[in-house]
Structures are given as C-alpha cells and as structure tokens.
Design a protein around this nucleic acid. Structure first.
Lengths: 118, 118
DNA sequence: CTGTATCCTACGAGATACTG
DNA sequence: CAGTATCTCGTAGGATACAG
C-alpha cells in the first residue's frame, strides 16, 4: 500500500487493533457492511464525504486484513458486493459498543468538541 | 488547537467517539493512566516512541474532552499527575475490549500486518 | 456501475533546543 | 521534572478525470 518510513511497533493488542482499524472510514465501512449495505455505490452514498478512491483503498485494506471479502459478479453493468468474514464479524460487538458510547454521550460530546473548534 | 479547514461532520455516535479518540497515542494514554501510570515521565517511558511534545498535546486534548484531569503540585521538583474522570472511566471497558480482541488474535494479526509491509 | 491514475494539500507528529 | 516554540516532513485523504 504505502511504504512506511516510520517504523511500526506492535507491542500489545491495542497496537494490533489500531493497525487494522486505522483509516478514517474503516469502522464505518465495517458497520455499514454489517448493516447490509454491501455495494460500493451504497457505501459511497452512506459515506458521502469520502471519495471513491479512498473508500476503495480502505476496502482493499480491510480485505487484506481478512475482515471482509469482495465478490465480483460478471454482469453488465458490473456488480460488486462486500461481506464481513467471520473474523470481521467478531469486531462488530466492539464497534457497536463504540457507537453506543458515542450515542449515550452525544450532547456532552457535541458541546465539548464544538467548544474547541471556535 | 488547530484551525480546521476540513469540516467535521458528527452524524452518529461513531463519529463522536472517533473525534474524541483520534490521535495516535490517546487510547494508550487513557489505558496507562487507568493502570496507575499518572505522571508525564512515566507515560513517556511507557510510550517511548512518542515525543514529549506530542504526548502533552494529546493529554491536553483529553483534558479538554473531560476524559482526564490534571493536577499540578507546587513542589520542587515539579510534579504533575493525571487521572481519569468518571466520564473517562466509562471508556475503559471499551478500550479493554479493543485490547482483548487484539490479544486474542495476536498471531493472525501479526502475520497479516507484516505480510502487507513487504 | 465499477475501478484506478494523477496531482495536491492539510495536518499529525518527529527532532531539537530552550525556559521555568 | 515539566512545558512550549520552531522548524520540518511523511502521508492519508481530497479532487478530478478517465477506463473497463
């Protein structure tokens, strides 16, 4: 993907998961795929701030990390679908917990974050 | 902190928590502080790859987000201690889950990650 | 509907050196 | 021991345009 010039150190589980989830949209991609939005165009619509290029890049990384699989249908027009692997599914509860925490503290977080961006 | 030129959008809980945890060392900082390593020099030793400057920046953000508090003791030599707020403590179970997942899949992750950095 | 190639910029983060 | 200032750079990710 990229040639790292900064060495990566993988001491603990936190480092490892950090490596796999690193990327602005990865968590959301996993989440939406889990919800059943499997096609690139759907994902793009859901995450409209990201460009197709970046989405594809991060999807490819998720694939390499064996969290999702990609199926290409030989039809016209082209059709592609992503799915979570069993391995990827084990991440869903954790992502759910993250989202839950954010939802639970929405008001507080919103004001804290906005306060800092004056 | 910085003047954002890229707009931030906070649609869901996932966005919100992402904003708060964004920063290369934040999760680890929270983790180590929770473990009882409260002083800057200790944290620096634990996270020896990060420079003091970056550590301080991220600690300050965590403070602004009310996840930690900072106590400065008026002694010589200077002494500073960070602690989790009650709010910050609510994140610990989630961070623990993240680390656990990483530990559980250590071998697999390690090979996946290394494979990609050839 | 897909994907990739090119170009470009914001910004997170490192290094160093200095003050209290 | 603690903190901040300055300078610098790598790179993730945005924009656009084209190709299967």
């Amino acid at each position: 993907m990229y040639e790292r010039k900064i060495p990566l150190n993988l001491n603990c589980g936190l480092d490892l998961i950090g490596e796999v989830l690193y990327g602005k949209w990865k968590i959301r991609l996993l989440w939406f795929i889990n919800e059943g939005h499997k096609r690139p165009s759907e994902l793009q619509r859901k995450i409209s701030d990201a460009s197709r290029r970046v989405l594809n890049m991060q999807l490819k990384e998720l694939e390499q990390h064996e969290l999702i699989t990609k199926v290409i249908y030989a039809v016209v027009p082209p059709k592609v679908e992503y799915s979570l692997t069993d391995f990827g599914k084990t991440l869903i509860p954790i992502i759910a917990a993250l989202g839950q925490w954010g939802d639970d503290n929405e008001t507080r977080l919103r004001s804290l974050i906005l306060k800092e961006n004056v």
